[in-house]
């Protein structure tokens, strides 16, 4: 819970406990949003159900706006927030492999655990597949390391790359998200599959 300055002096076990409860909350929210059904994620690809984009984009813009505001009021040190380093090759190739896996399996790693916890058998198989993939990746890593590490861009941030302030970028993203939600709802009507969505 490092970056939130008012609670940064908590002992380690309390930090872990808070993380535990946040994890439970996250899993519960995923389940409640219906992500424990593999049809939801697949529906994003086929266009009959766009809950995924709406939920995740809403989460992203709420977190983005919230962290900016907390930082402005001195409650959160954004400098201590981890920024994922950007490896262009890995991001593109990994994105394609992962994306294909999500469509075929109907889960992403988070939702598969959420579905596993309510006893879905397909989620168990999906998770097993994920672990086999992770194992194969580790075993073959020495052969692909050079490729994966190529085109390293460091801890890149889009607002810095565009040369605008984080606040302006947040506004742009919120507008883009709202526009995307509107298009998504149109798509849902166009590609509707009542035979599937009535089950969800």
């Amino acid at each position: 819970m490092g970056p939130i300055s008012i609670i940064s002096d908590f002992p380690e076990w309390l930090n872990m406990l808070i993380a535990f409860f946040i994890g439970i909350g996250f899993g519960f929210a995923l389940e409640q949003a219906g992500f424990s059904s593999s049809r939801r994620l697949a529906g994003m690809f086929y266009g009959y159900d766009t809950t995924v984009i709406k939920v995740f984009f809403t989460a992203a813009i709420v977190a983005l706006a919230g962290s900016q505001l907390l930082s402005f009021f001195g409650l959160l040190n954004l400098k201590l927030v981890f920024v994922n380093p950007y490896y262009v090759n890995s991001a593109i190739l990994g994105g394609i492999i992962m994306g294909a896996g999500f469509i075929m399996g109907g889960y992403c790693p988070g939702t598969s655990i959420s579905a596993l916890s309510i006893g879905k058998i397909d989620a168990m198989i999906f998770l097993l597949g994920g672990m086999v993939g992770a194992f194969l990746f580790m075993e073959t890593y020495p052969f692909i390391q050079a490729f994966a590490m190529e085109n390293y861009k460091g801890n890149m941030r889009i607002d810095e790359w565009l040369g605008v302030s984080p606040g302006v970028f947040t506004l742009l993203l919120i507008i883009a998200a709202v526009a995307m939600f509107w298009i998504a709802e149109l798509a849902e009507k166009k590609f509707s599959r009542p035979d599937i969505t009535s089950d969800l």
Partner: peptide, 10 residues
């Protein structure tokens, strides 16, 4: 959200 975004931008 758009309102908060406008505050943030300014």
């Amino acid at each position: 959200l758009v309102g908060i975004g406008i505050i943030l931008a300014f």
